[in-house]
């Protein structure tokens, strides 16, 4: 049991292990400067944390280069850094000739997640960027002014007011980031395919670092290491009432004679499926290798289909996917461990 006195520290430690958010700007005099780091600004001084942030390729790409990409990612020492660059309004007097007060501020938002849960990065960076741009487009330059003003040795009343105003906006922004992050992790797992390999990998990782994921089994948890609720118990009813999967595995078994894996899948709906792709793969030496890639042109309503895959020597885990070939939506995915089949 965790000592409640230390719970804040633990909570912060766990959040930092799961997710960090960096809001930075490009200073015309000093370069890449952090404005705010979530969960704590103390990481500003930590070279280990700041190295990939300062040299992230997001800084070196222009807005034109970025127009075709949603975000730029950097993998570094077990973490993925999702970077996004935005321009926001400014009335700040710039410190380089040729730049107007109205020249927009270059803001970079970076979200870092351990590689094991990088599946969540795409949605989180998009949500953070959209909200920050929407709510703070006209205020971020005030935080920048405030940070620059803090460096002044003599602080006049005007400077003090500037610092105070900037600090207040910064704290509001921190609260907003906290809320977005918590809300995101609160709901995201349910929205995605709970049986996907990446998802299972993410859950394993969170469990391993001591994050409470017991909600998924028990439904109710009185105590949690952090207030990020990955599986919100209050929403379990909705899950139960959710529409049943259109395709479902009726049976999986091994044909001993021929050393084959037999998977029967039923289209449980009253409609035909067209152009559905079925894939069976396995992982060998970190690479996913394909055994079957089958396009089903028509899958009749209520029809069961039989998929047979050879069982390969020394390979016990197989991945089974059904994908809509047109929009690439995953209709079904299942990890099959033949050692667990009776």
């Amino acid at each position: 049991m965790v000592d409640p006195k230390n719970s804040t520290l633990l909570e912060e430690k766990h959040i930092a292990e799961i997710c960090m958010v960096y809001v930075l700007y490009f200073d015309e005099a000093q370069g890449h400067i952090p404005l705010l780091i979530f969960p704590d600004d103390k990481y500003k001084e930590d070279k280990k944390f700041m190295r990939p942030i300062k040299y992230h390729s997001i800084w070196f790409l222009s807005s034109d280069d970025l127009s075709a990409l949603d975000h730029i990612d950097l993998e570094y020492k077990g973490f993925t850094y999702f970077g996004k660059k935005i321009l926001t309004k400014s009335k700040r007097k710039k410190r380089r000739a040729g730049l107007e007060e109205e020249t927009p501020e270059t803001i970079v938002i970076i979200v870092s997640l351990p590689n094991d849960i990088e599946i969540f990065g795409d949605g989180l960076i998009r949500k953070l960027t959209e909200t920050i741009q929407d709510k703070y487009d006209e205020q971020l330059y005030k935080i920048i002014e405030s940070e620059i003003a803090k460096e002044q040795i003599i602080k006049t009343e005007k400077i003090k007011t500037c610092i105070q105003e900037g600090t207040e906006i910064k704290e509001e922004l921190r609260t907003l980031i906290t809320e977005i992050t918590e809300d995101y992790f609160d709901t995201v797992i349910k929205q995605k395919d709970a049986t996907s390999i990446k998802q299972q990998k993410a859950i394993s990782f969170l469990s391993l670092i001591g994050h409470d994921v017991s909600h998924i089994i028990s439904g109710v948890s009185d105590f949690s290491f952090s207030n990020i609720k990955l599986f919100d118990p209050s929403k379990t009813d909705k899950t139960e009432l959710a529409v049943k999967a259109p395709l479902s595995i009726s049976s999986i078994h091994i044909i001993e004679d021929s050393k084959e894996l037999e998977i029967i899948v039923e289209n449980k709906t009253d409609k035909e499926y067209n152009n559905v792709r079925v894939k069976i793969t396995h992982v060998k030496e970190f690479f996913e290798k394909e055994i079957m890639d089958q396009l089903i042109d028509i899958w009749f309503q209520q029809e069961e289909l039989l998929f047979i895959s050879p069982i390969l020597p020394h390979i016990s885990e197989y991945l089974f996917f059904i994908i809509d070939d047109k929009n690439k939506d995953k209709l079904l995915s299942k990890r099959i461990d033949i050692n667990l089949l009776t």
């Binding site: 084959e260 029967i264 079957m292 089903i296 029809e303 069961e304 039989l306 998929f307 047979i308 895959s309």
Partner: peptide, 10 residues
């Protein structure tokens, strides 16, 4: 029962 189902294998 499954022998006659539409079957796909490599």
């Amino acid at each position: 029962e499954s022998s006659g189902l539409r079957q796909f294998k490599p």
